[in-house]
């Protein structure tokens, strides 16, 4: 069974008196350990699809299955539980909590899961070491560079070992060198930890690193490479 299954999913937004279809009759299967990108120009439906897979939004029609569970009609609390236990998010603007230190940000999801402080700190420090963040544990996000913040965001997304990590334009705020480093790092995590990554991006650099490219246009599948 596929890790993620989208069955004839549509998402229609109402803008004033008009209805705009962000995604139309879209089906997709993603297996565990994939490293794929949703590519396409602005407005093609990349972020909408990520939001649907990430249980941040509900489809207007169709079904979304995650790890064998139909999440389409799950309640608020159930969705929060799914997001906590099965999904890791990496945002374009990092979105770290400014009042927490790097380590506290990274261990936030473990705290929500109820893991003991000592254990969660240990797990975070291991990943910090692996991602080259040694010595930055007690720094606030404002004292970190963009690349460092995004790596902390990756630790936050990965630390609870979710079923899938969703990254919306993860390199959009980084320069080309930091973007390249970040992609190599995520490839390494995908390879070594068998972590499933789904990106949305129109950055050729990101697309070039993906093993599977799903090209979108106007909410439809245009091409799959």
């Amino acid at each position: 069974m596929a890790l993620i299954e989208l069955k004839a999913v549509s998402k229609i937004y109402r803008v004033g008196n008009q209805q705009v279809a962000a995604v139309q009759d879209f089906s997709l299967e993603v297996e565990t350990g994939e490293f794929c990108v949703l590519a396409g120009p602005s407005g093609s439906g990349k972020t909408t699809l990520l939001n649907l897979i990430g249980c941040l939004d509900r489809p207007t029609s169709g079904e979304v299955w995650l790890a064998g569970q139909d999440v389409t009609r799950a309640g608020e609390k159930a969705l929060a539980d799914i997001r906590l236990n099965k999904i890791g998010f990496i945002f374009q603007a990092y979105n770290l909590i400014p009042v927490l230190t790097a380590a506290e940000n990274a261990e936030f999801t473990l705290m929500l899961m109820g893991m003991a402080k000592k254990n969660r700190r240990q797990r975070v420090l291991e990943l910090f070491s692996e991602l080259g963040l040694d010595g930055l544990e007690n720094r606030k996000p404002a004292d970190l560079s963009g690349g460092q913040q995004q790596r902390v965001a990756i630790v936050r997304a990965m630390v609870a070992e979710p079923a899938v990590i969703l990254a919306d334009e993860p390199t959009a705020s980084l320069d080309s060198q930091a973007s390249e480093e970040l992609m190599i790092l995520m490839q390494k995590l995908n390879r070594e930890r068998n972590a499933t990554f789904i990106f949305s991006s129109h950055d050729p650099l990101v697309i070039s690193h993906a093993r599977r490219v799903i090209k979108l246009l106007d909410g439809h599948l245009e091409q799959e490479l």
Binding site: E76, A80, D81, F89, F91, N95, L112
Partner: peptide, 16 residues
């Protein structure tokens, strides 16, 4: 507002 959205995306429940 945006931060609360992020916290919810990370799995924080409304009650929390």
């Amino acid at each position: 507002t945006r931060e609360f959205g992020v916290l919810k995306a990370l799995g924080m429940k409304p009650g929390q």
